[in-house]
Design a protein around this nucleic acid. Structure first.
Lengths: 184, 184, 184, 184
DNA sequence: TATGAATGAGAATTCATTCAT
DNA sequence: TATGAATGAATTCTCATTCAT
């Protein structure tokens, strides 16, 4: 399965043949079909698993932080870490996949919904506390989710993402705090 | 070519067969290969054309506006208009395509770069005028580009995008102005 | 299509690969799928065509004969001719095929029904004329159809079918006339 | 082995996978290959066993009867009983199988030969006694074997074979007696 | 310019068979 | 004896591409 994620991320759904996957995993074709019903099912499954993993990991970093700045900083740090150390995850979720498999459209919608909800949660808390300006939090969460994804993708395009990671996290945090008008 | 955009957007690169395209255009397969060297070349060409069209259209709406709020509002209005009336454009650029054709990764990078530069331009002007806070404008432009795309994509997911379009433009504009700390 | 009949008759449905068929017909695999939707459809189609051909040919030999002995003799002669000169036809209809393709069960039933009806027709005429004994003609036709098939199949098993053909036709005719108690 | 006969009869040789067979028998795949060298060998073996069983059973019903009418009636009754209560036997021998496995052609020939010989035996006795007309008994036996098979097959096609069985046996007996010109 | 029949490399998938446990 | 995970040859079918007309 790890082999499959790697191959799918590298080659894209269609150019990743079952033969590529099994030879990356060093097993025979038949073995693939012993464990998975078909290529598409595996791909969709992998997409969902990966999406869950990403969101779970970020949420884990967000909860148990007391203030919004901390929540954002830690969540973004977690996101950037995944992007830098497991680029295949980001590749699969943000770039490849959708468009190749029709049944993925729906899964993508679920993923985006969960991602947005994940970022919206700390904003709701902050608004309860009255530390951010009144606003349509759903829309703000959409915008922040998109903003973070784009910055992360740009980060990965740089020659040395690790070096830039710290600055990127800080600047994204500041961007978000300004956008919600945070009054510490 | 319009037929091709439609078919590619509907079915995705791989599921859109040359036969689908030519029958949508009501010509024969041979005719296709008389005008285009192959399927991939056409697709990449279409991607570039579409990307140029999107950026040109938004920029056109942005220039000649005096203030940042106006520039943002008009640009976003143009973007939303395209999304609502030509969803295939957004489908091609933001969802499908990349991941299907390897040679598109590079084109996608160019598109994002141009899109970011396009949003960055009015920010630079505003900073010259001293009406926004000091900040890494490149990063801000990345974030805004991503934010706008995500909101537009969400808009298209709604049952009646047209009805929501106005509110979405306003809220995105406000979001951007807060994020850059605009002091009118 | 002739190539296909030959290959199917020789090898049976499953052992006749599409590659066998196209190389027998000296075309490419793609050409096969340009003309036929799939292997099974072709096979079923061929089975029906062949069944129709056999029955039509025998019926043609039967009609326009005045008396039952003549009708039987000519019909059987036609049947034996096909068997001897186009053994693939008999092979396809009586031996191979059914059991290999599920959807053929129904077609086989139709074929048997038509074959039985074909032999029943001259019997009905003879009964009208009162030249054969009262009996359940449907059952007699079933029995005769089966009897003729078996004798033809045995004929093909012999080293030199052509030599035996004449005797076989005569004996089958006599057998049938005795079985229906024909009083010339 | 009973499971195998059932599965082969239901699905046909090729569509009956080894997995189908072992799961019907509630054992593991490995166990199959402990008892049988391979699928084809089992199938051929089953075909032979089944053929022997059918012929033995009918012959048993025929011997020890004094007169031809009794011999035919009892033999046909036995045949029909098998067909009605063990349709898989008839399915395997008369419909499926041959055409699927090349090495079965020979076995089929043996089966037909034995079946014909079986029906021929009482005819020889009758001719010895001078109660039937002079004729080529071999040919007559072929014809009767084919006739009986066809009627039995038609019987199985009916909605309620049991109800019709008695009549069918009687009519087949009469048919045969007329065909051999029996003078009781 | 336009056509569409023909091509064949390549992909997904199946399934009889093996063998270490 | 019994198991079932692992194998890979073989098969069907697709589809981008060509080329004679």
């Amino acid at each position: 399965m790890q082999a499959a994620v790697r191959v799918f991320a590298e080659r894209g759904y269609h150019d990743a043949t079952v033969r590529d996957i099994v030879s990356a995993a060093d097993v025979a074709v038949g073995t693939f079909y012993f464990y998975f019903p078909d290529k598409e099912t595996l791909f969709v499954h992998l997409y969902e698993e990966t999406a869950d993993f990403l969101i779970r990991t970020i949420r884990q970093a967000v909860v148990n932080r007391a203030t919004l700045p901390q929540q954002l900083a830690m969540g973004l740090q977690a996101y950037v870490n995944i992007a830098v150390y497991e680029p295949a995850v980001v590749q699969l979720l943000l770039v490849g996949g959708v468009g190749a498999v029709l049944s993925l459209i729906e899964k993508r919608a679920v993923f985006r919904e969960n991602l947005i909800a994940m970022w919206q949660a700390p904003l709701e808390q902050a608004m309860q506390k009255g530390v951010i300006a009144p606003q349509n939090l759903r829309r703000t969460a959409e915008a922040l989710a998109g903003a973070f994804d784009e910055v992360v993708l740009n980060l990965l395009g740089h020659p040395n993402p690790e070096a830039e990671a710290g600055t990127a996290v800080q600047e994204m945090t500041q961007f978000a705090l300004r956008a919600v008008v945070y009054k510490g």
